[in-house]
Write a protein that binds this DNA or RNA. Sequence first.
DNA 1: CACCAGGCAAGTA
DNA 2: TACTTGCATGGT
Length: 215
Amino acid sequence: MKKHLLDIYKRLYAALGSQHWWPGDTPFEIIVGAILTQNTAWTNVEKAINNLKQNRLLSAKALSKSKPSKIAKLIRPSGYYNIKTKRLKNFLNFLNDKFNGDLDQLLKHETGRLRTELLEINGIGPETADSILLYAANKPVFVIDAYTKRIFSRHGLIKKDAAYEEAQYFFMSNLPKNLKLYNEYHALIVKIGKEFCKKNPKCRICPLKNSRGGG
DNA sequence: CACCAGGCAAGTA
DNA sequence: TACTTGCATGGT
């Protein structure tokens, strides 16, 4: 299996190349993007990020000083804007209260400790936490998302109702622990997930989507 | 028009 | 513990 998973990666990389993830300039921007993209198309998140950028609010300090109503207005295109405003504030309050707003200090924490800390923040679940760990803190942690579960369960490699950590363990125990590998692999999975949907509007993977409604 | 997107938490039984 | 529902805009 070890070789198998790595082979899949090599084929994807050979076919599609480097995905240059995460699409963000700073760790803070990556964290904001990770929260805003929860169950949301990235194209919509880009609009929200651009709004924040144009208002010079894409820093922990600036966003901390912003009123929730202002943030909500700017991130509106990303959907769920009220709850996502709270989630951004929850993260910022944690950062300010426990680390005096010093993001670099937080991101230097040991992987397991940092993951636990992120998960204690209301609004940050396993995928968002792992995205932050991998793409903002550069920790070798494999990110599991809806595409990953859908594609690999359809191929019979993981159970379709596998728990998050179970799916994650499958990848991490069968792949070398390597930052670049985890970075590109997850991005490539998202890429083929999207591409496959585009070319096959009635594909047998995407319409099955999540358990709600099922098929 | 219906369906879905790089989830998560809260409510219910 | 296991299921269900709310959150919301914008693209296809």
